[in-house]
């Protein structure tokens, strides 16, 4: 059982890390702010989500698991808000400069 969980952790965390890679590449390679934003948020939320998912079996106790999920939810909320706000700032005729 332990081993199965460990394998799950390794798989999920690896996949998560990969999404971070994807996000970074998108941020670096995509041509304009809006597409970059798109790449970034999709990737880092999925990445973080998979990492959290992978860590859940390793969590010691219920509270620790809840905290992990809470971290992910908060990051999701922050990410979504930031995307909205930044996208609007970009659309409003470019960033205020």
């Amino acid at each position: 059982m332990r081993q199965v969980l460990d394998i799950f952790t390794v798989a999920a965390v690896s996949a998560g890390a990969l999404f971070f890679l994807v996000g970074t590449v998108g941020l670096l390679r995509f041509p304009d702010p809006l597409t970059r934003l798109h790449a970034l948020t999709k990737a880092d939320n999925l990445g973080l989500g998979l990492v959290v998912l992978g860590l859940l079996p390793q969590a010691e106790g219920f509270l620790a698991g809840v905290k992990l999920v809470a971290v992910w939810l908060l990051a999701q909320l922050a990410g979504a808000t930031v995307t909205q706000l930044v996208a609007r700032a970009v659309r409003r005729g470019g960033p205020p400069a």
Partner: peptide, 19 residues
């Protein structure tokens, strides 16, 4: 080049830092 890009980089580092 835009400030929004810089913020995005910071945001990505934030998520990565949390992970």
């Amino acid at each position: 080049p835009a400030d929004a890009d810089r913020l995005m980089a910071a945001q990505l580092l934030g998520s990565g830092g949390i992970a």
